[in-house]
Write a protein that binds this DNA or RNA. Sequence first.
DNA 1: ATAGGGTTAG
Length: 523
Amino acid sequence: MKAQNLNQIAIRAQQQLVTNPKPLLLNPLLSLLTNSQNAFFHLYKQMLAHPFSHNHFTFTHALKACCSHHARSKALEIHAHLVKSGHYLDLVLQNSLLHFYLAHNDVVSASNLFRSIPSPDIVSWTSLISGLAKAGFEAQSLHHFSAMNAKPKSIKPNAATFVAALCACSSLRALRLGKSVHAYGLKLIVDVNIVFDNAVLDFYAKCGTLKNAKNLFDKMSMRDVISWTTLLMGYARGGYCEEAFSVFKQMVLNAEAEPNEATIVTVLSACASIGALSLGQWVHSYIDLRHDLVVDGNIGNALLNMYVKCGDMQMGLRVFDILVHKDVISWGTVICGLAMNDYGKRTLELFARMLVEGVEPDDVTFIGVLSACSHAGLVNEGVMFFKAMRDFYGIVPQMRHYGCMVDMYGRAGLFDEAEAFLRSMPVEAEGPIWGALLQACKIHGNERMSEWIRGHLKGKSVGVGTLALLSNIYASSERWDDANKVRKRMRGTGLKKTAGCSWLELQMSNNRLDSNFCATSWG
DNA sequence: ATAGGGTTAG
């Protein structure tokens, strides 16, 4: 709703209050103001002032507004008012209150309220079952689902209730239970209901096999964008990213439903996770073809992430440049991307630009910045940024930040500094940090440090990669006994070192960013 | 008038 229209509605409401302040005429105007908190509650207050200018409907609108604006104290106020004025006896109002509490995860108030309802109707039950499932109380949710069927006051679930129960089953990964809910639903729901079908589809995609989900999808008599996206996400989540992409391609070619933001963001993330540049490019062309879609916001960030993950920094930077709203995610993506692809100096230039444009860096931004310093050998800068992060931006360093610092000292061969830093850390370093340092010891031939690390790792559980590295260090200095000891320990844990692999398509080597491009791209 | 479906990312 445009601001201009809102003003007109507010003015009409003021006229109405003077000429004929009847709830029948005022309530529809009030409901139109729901999205504008101030205007809404201004009118609401005026209507409340006169006993004959409001009724039950007024309060349902008010509670709905509280829901969308997260106005908890306002909702409590309304609750109290309803009790005092006697409106509380209306079941619809109790249901509205129940929904407000559940939507704000106030399970205690919601349960108390539900217990106080003498004869809950289908909406009360469904609200409760759905709210509990979403708040993480799946078992209680399903308990109520079965309780509602119990005599003497049994109430038959409807499609909305089944959707809520299936949601609880999905979160619990309760395959058998969900199957029986599905079967029960098939008995009670006779008309085609696409929301129910989609909920079932999502349940099988999450808990069952993708084959089941695909069969169901093929059998559905109607499919909309959510059906397609649910299937696509099922494949992507299961790691079948090529299949996820082919669902997208089919969706576009068969034109049964039009992809929306969720569809596109999901398929781009699938392409990114396997480094499938050519598939990602296909999605990009599709976005450009759709003149109603803009490369910005979530789609822009997802596209940027896809190019970065596929190693095409040139396109990544081009997408980054055209983003109108560059948020902390956009900056973080491009900064970490440059750092990962070893453009240390460019990373820091972009970080400076981020600060100039007034976007506050967060923990992930500093991962990129610190790892750029580490890769480029900029130790002084790294130390400075680490301090700025902690002391100026108030970001508590996490293991990953510590890791960057230790890695930075190690790569620079500053082992005393690395050791001092490790000792100054408030938390115990984790496996990967030791691994990075061992790697540095190997490169710089620092056996004393390797020994010290070995002492630290004694009896601790560390990743197999670290152990492999340690054994290789021993092997390279021909300390076979020590090397074998470590190998033995690897076998003892039942771990195997798998060969590293890269999914990046081969063409990425042609997409490396050259210094010329960097120099011209932002002056 | 009140309850119901899929969401990604650094």
